[in-house]
Write a protein that binds this DNA or RNA. Structure first.
Length: 746
DNA sequence: AGCACGCCGACT
DNA sequence: GTCGGCGTGCTC
């Protein structure tokens, strides 16, 4: 008998950029046992590695074939459709199929072998608390821990400690003293077991909500692929629309995935879904343990959890037949993964709903230009507008403060006179305020403080940045020019370099407003796990008057006590060296404005800027998305930027600046050669230029950007390039990353 | 990633 | 003559 069986195996070798499968003979003992999707142990050269079985054949394609040594896991780890998804990811985002597959089944690969989990319960009954309080009046922290344990039974030690705001040491002590009971949990973990399923009486829908639900439900009934752009202002009740649509899709026997940005996946959000769908909900977020994530993953896989609520990576979940995918806040850049495979959840959602004839709903108050463009009349998406807030509340009043006038009238500080005055007013009325600034801006931005002029590259329309050699540089095309001493427009010598930090704001605020209580929230103060929540809790308890923070204070917060939001400098995002700077500024300002006026009193917003006439700032101040969209889209069209083009960004990085630059120049030459002789749309290639973050950690970074209205041609260039280089940059000490549809050019 | 093969300089 | 430098190229 010569009918031997061979398996096609994708080997897991880091650094091996190949979609090639290797044939291994299936040993007799494994015939009928090894299946598609199994992970197996094999020799690859002299090293023992694992690989994924992705096919079988009865003929061998090469002379020398080794045997599979053994199974790595008993059961198959993925289905055909998951491999197809991985292949699509690898193909579209230029990464290896193995890498993509590893991402697609990450929770399975990181699964812990039924590791038992310790859960903490109070050994004290609630009615014993008052007596204890008298017994140990000097231990308020201990009592607080007990209270938390009573309110939230079954937390982990660490969770209990952070939820109470004490150290884990204290929790351990209480366990040792017998006040807390430790239970070793069974392998089935339900991180949200404390949430009860409340079959809520459905709330009434507004007319707008009703229409949205009906449109989407009709599409779900029809069962074809459709995409809806749900453009609804903050507070227009999009979530209720999502919930109703999910109910609809469940009736058709299919499943639903809801994606929310990391910051929006709060316990409240989970509670909302749990209340409606109970155990049918699987939650996936990044702070779960590997074991918890795996448990949810299995419930999705075997169909027990038809409703998935999660962050970006949940789009890869093994939902058998997603009839509905919802992406809330679809414009959020966090939907783009910044490590390989560098996928955008929206693009994956599009692929998945196309493939299984499902409905995709993109919700946002400030849609991305890419999506809104397609939702215009005649586009592939259907637009649903929800322009009104459900409670009839009006949008807050936004006032622009022209900082050029402040400079002219002799105030060269961070705060305008009006902002200080308003802050004093709020303090006097015992109301709260948020001061927002964007530190992600570059110190190196050059602005004329008299007329507000920001120097831009004549070729790319991108802000020039200041370098220590005294020159200004374009980080797209490497255009260079001597930094002017006087403003080329108005001749003023008041040319400034920007970069104000939260710390400085905090200090100056304390100096300007004696006695004020300030909380600061930025990357420095929230590095510890749970500190983010702690700061917010303290602030909403009224422990501070002013919250000073970066990006993170802008998104998703619901603080009814806040009646004033001050934006220190809108220009720091507006003039970032990135073609999406205007879009992000508009989104950010719109978000920030949505943070106020959530309580009974109407809120107000003060935006300080040197360029109040800029359309992004103007439109944001009037809550006018359409006005912004029209101006921005005109600029994109003129420059040939996305959404009128597809973009690919290559980053070359390594320890030696000169080596990296040289390699980048070579690659550019390669690309030029691959681009010539193509019939079809023009391909733009710029760079190499130092990446805006030109030195990240130890590495020097150079980048090359390619874009074209004709994506087929662009792909062709990239395919040739990857084929020639194997996707790996030539030479050692040099690394390269490929980013398709990059969100940032930084 | 590893590990071979391979083609040039300085050593017992 | 050989040891070993690390530049290309392959691994079923």
């Amino acid at each position: 008998m010569n009918n031997k069986l061979y398996a096609d195996v994708l080997v897991e070798v880091p650094g091996l950029f190949t979609d090639h499968t290797y044939q291994y003979q299936v040993p007799l003992k494994l015939v009928g046992i090894v299946q598609f999707g199994n992970r197996v142990k094999v020799y690859f050269g002299k090293q023992k590695v694992t690989g994924f079985v992705v096919g079988f054949s009865e003929k061998k394609a090469v002379e020398e074939v080794k045997e599979i040594l053994d199974l790595a896991d008993e059961r198959p780890l993925f289905r055909e459709d998951q491999l197809a998804l991985a292949r699509w990811l690898a193909d579209y985002y230029f990464c290896s199929t193995v890498k993509a597959l590893q991402s697609v089944i990450a929770p399975v690969l990181k699964r812990t072998v039924s590791r038992s989990v310790e859960r903490i319960y109070s050994a004290v009954r609630p009615e014993q608390l008052p007596a204890l309080r008298e017994q140990m009046p000097r231990s308020p922290k201990r009592l607080a821990v007990l209270e938390t344990a009573l309110q939230h039974p079954g937390l982990r030690k660490r969770e209990l400690a952070t939820a109470t705001g004490v150290s884990i040491y204290l929790v351990n002590q209480l366990c040792a003293g017998g006040m807390l009971r430790v239970e070793t949990d069974l392998p089935t973990r339900d991180p949200y077991s404390q949430y009860k399923f409340i079959n809520q009486a459905p709330v009434g829908l507004t007319g707008e909500q009703n229409r949205a639900v009906q449109d989407i439900a009709a599409a779900l009934q029809q069962g074809g692929h459709r995409v809806f752009m749900l453009h609804g202002v903050t507070g227009s009740g999009k979530t209720e629309v999502y919930l109703r649509c999910i109910e609809q899709v469940l009736h058709t026997g299919r499943q639903a995935i809801t994606l929310v940005p990391e910051i929006a996946l709060t316990p409240q959000m989970v509670r909302l879904y749990k209340a409606r769908f109970g155990r049918d909900v699987a939650v996936l977020h990044s702070r779960m343990s590997d074991g918890e994530r795996y448990d949810e993953w299995s419930r999705i896989e075997n169909g027990r959890a038809p409703v998935v609520l999660g962050v970006r990576s949940a789009i890869l979940a093994p939902v058998p037949d997603p009839g509905l995918i919802i992406i809330d806040e679809e414009h959020e850049p966090s939907y783009k993964q910044e490590e390989a495979p560098r996928y955008h959840a929206r693009a994956v959602a599009l692929y998945r709903t196309q493939k299984c004839r499902g409905v995709l709903v993109l919700g946002s108050a400030t849609p991305s230009l890419e999506s809104y463009c397609r939702a215009l009349p005649g586009g592939e998406y259907s637009l649903i507008n929800m322009p009104n807030r459900i409670n009839g509340k009006s949008m807050p009043n936004v006032q622009l403060v022209d900082m050029r006038r402040e400079v002219q009238s002799g105030n060269s500080g961070i705060f305008s006179l009006i902002l200080l005055q308003k802050l004093r007013e709020k303090l006097h009325n015992k109301e709260q305020a948020i001061i927002f600034l964007n530190r992600r801006g570059f110190k190196t931005l050059v602005v004329c403080r008299e007329c507000g002029l920001v120097l831009k590259c004549p070729r790319c329309e991108i802000s020039l940045t200041y370098h220590t050699d005294g020159r200004l540089r374009c980080h797209y095309c490497n255009y260079r020019v001597q930094a002017p001493k006087h403003c080329p427009d108005c001749g003023s010598s008041q040319v400034g370099y920007f970069g104000t930090g939260t710390q400085r704001v905090e200090l100056e605020l304390a100096a300007a407003l004696p006695g004020v209580r300030i909380l600061r929230m930025d990357a420095d103060t929230t590095s510890r796990k749970g500190s983010h929540e702690q700061i917010l809790a303290a602030y909403s308890n009224g422990e501070a008057d002013i919250l000073v923070g970066t990006q993170m204070v802008a998104k998703g917060l619901d603080l009814p006590g806040v009646t004033l939001v001050g934006v220190i400098n809108a220009d720091s995002t507006l003039h970032m060296p990135d073609f999406r700077a205007g879009e992000r500024t508009f989104q950010l300002l719109a978000q920030v404005a949505g943070r106020t006026g959530r309580g009974d009193k109407t809120g107000e917003v003060l935006i300080q800027t040197y360029t109040p006439e800029h359309y992004a700032v103007q439109a944001a101040s009037r809550h006018n998305y359409l006005a912004f969209f029209q101006q921005e889209i005109a600029m994109r069209k003129e420059m040939g930027y996305p959404p009128f083009a597809k973009m690919v960004r290559l980053i070359l990085y390594g320890r030696d600046d000169a080596v990296v630059q040289q390699a980048a120049e070579k690659i550019r030459a390669h690309l030029d050669r691959f681009a010539v002789g193509l019939s079809g749309g023009k391909i733009m290639i710029v760079g190499p230029a130092p990446a805006p973050l030109s030195r990240l950690k130890e590495d020097y970074r150079w980048h090359i950007i390619l874009w074209s209205a004709d994506y087929r041609q662009l792909r062709l260039v990239m395919e040739r390039f990857c084929q020639a280089t194997g996707g790996v940059a030539p030479g050692k000490e040099l690394k390269m990353s490929i980013n398709v549809d990059p969100m940032y050019i930084m």
